[in-house]
Design a binder for these strands. Structure first.
Length: 331
DNA sequence: TAGATGTTCCGCCATT
DNA sequence: CTAATGGCGGAACATC
């Protein structure tokens, strides 16, 4: 399942989201949004998802509502990937339910992949499954995690850590990044991007996909692509061709194209267009430069091409955008 | 608006 | 044997 771009999985990849009383509802929601939404283009070659809780049925969630788990913990026995959610209580020192720890142990023994978001790391740590491994959690709890589980190599200030079979993420939205990272591993960057788009997750992840995050899993060569993306961002104003970028990455254009798509999920030219449009936004919003000049600054040689691509991604013309933002700013 | 010209990018395949 | 590479052709696309 590591690099399934090769061929479709023979059977569906089973994801079980494990939750218990006092669950952090947001974590459960993030996992079910990413893994539980069908992708029409993929049909059955996609995840099958369960939400499992001890005994099944309703459980109190933290923001003041209930979650109705569709399955009991026995569902976790089928899981290829077990998403372990936590609760504020376990972060504060409460013992996770024994049945939950059992399910986690069982999954680990079977070689299932364990994905913990935020306080879920405390559950894995309590199960002893993070010993000797790098892991992370919400910054508010990182010191607590390190103090209580000294054998865990707690990473501060990262969005998520991929330590092979055990993955952990920081709090809140970082869980989304981790889940998308998992999708990317299983189905490739293009599919992960499609899921992100479906969630209307902004493309404005500074520096592009491969840049953000430590991604310890990055394959050799991804850094050269990432560096080249970084370099391209700093030189958007000049015309950038694929062969130029490839040269910068010390690869043939053909290989660069392949690597780029694997890392970013899109083609260099499409990515460049997106970056150029993104770069034009602050100039339109916070300067009085003529539209043509803004276009030139971000690498659109003619106003026509600037307008066209701007409209395609933003949905309105550069001038319309400037005006609507200016109006918003007066309020 | 139509058309000439250049670019991109992907399948194919021999090579490493 | 597998995996990655990079050259080639050509369709699709962008540009002026």
């Amino acid at each position: 399942m590591r690099h399934p771009q090769r061929e479709p999985a023979a059977r569906r990849h089973h994801v079980t989201v494990l939750a218990f009383d006092g669950a952090a509802g947001f974590e459960v929601a993030v996992a079910t949004e990413v893994f539980g939404q069908p992708i029409p283009q993929l049909g059955d070659d996609w995840y099958a998802l369960d939400v499992a809780a001890p005994g099944g049925g309703p459980l109190r969630a933290v923001p003041g509502y209930a979650i109705l788990a569709g399955a009991g913990l026995e569902a976790a026995r089928r899981a290829d990937t077990l998403v372990v959610t936590g609760s504020p209580a376990v972060a504060a020192g409460a013992e996770p339910p024994a049945a939950v720890l059992d399910a986690v142990h069982d999954a680990a023994a079977r070689g299932a992949r364990l994905v913990a978001m935020c306080t879920g790391a405390f559950v894995l740590a309590r199960a002893g499954l993070l010993d000797g491994l790098p892991a992370t959690t919400h910054w508010r709890f990182a010191a607590e995690l390190a103090a209580r589980f000294p054998r865990v190599d707690v990473q501060q200030d990262v969005l998520y850590v991929d330590a092979g079979p055990v993955l952990t993420s920081a709090g809140g939205a970082a869980g989304l990044d981790l889940c998308l990272h998992v999708v990317r591993q299983d189905f490739g960057a293009a599919t992960a991007n499609a899921v992100a788009r479906g969630l209307v997750l902004g493309p404005h992840r500074h520096g592009g996909f491969a840049q953000r995050a430590e991604a310890p899993v990055a394959r050799p060569g991804d850094d050269r692509v990432a560096e080249t993306m970084q370099w391209a961002l700093a030189h958007l104003d000049r015309p950038l061709t694929v062969s130029e970028l490839a040269g910068h990455a010390c690869m043939s254009p053909r290989t660069f194209l392949r690597r780029f798509r694997a890392a970013a999920g899109t083609s260099p030219s499409e990515w460049l267009l997106e970056q150029r449009v993104q770069a034009s936004l602050p100039l339109l919003e916070r300067s009085d430069l003529p539209v043509e000049t803004v276009g030139l600054r971000v690498g659109f040689p003619t106003p026509a091409s600037f307008r066209k691509h701007f409209r395609r991604t933003v949905g309105r013309s550069p001038l319309q955008h400037r005006r609507s933002v200016a109006r918003a700013a007066t309020f």
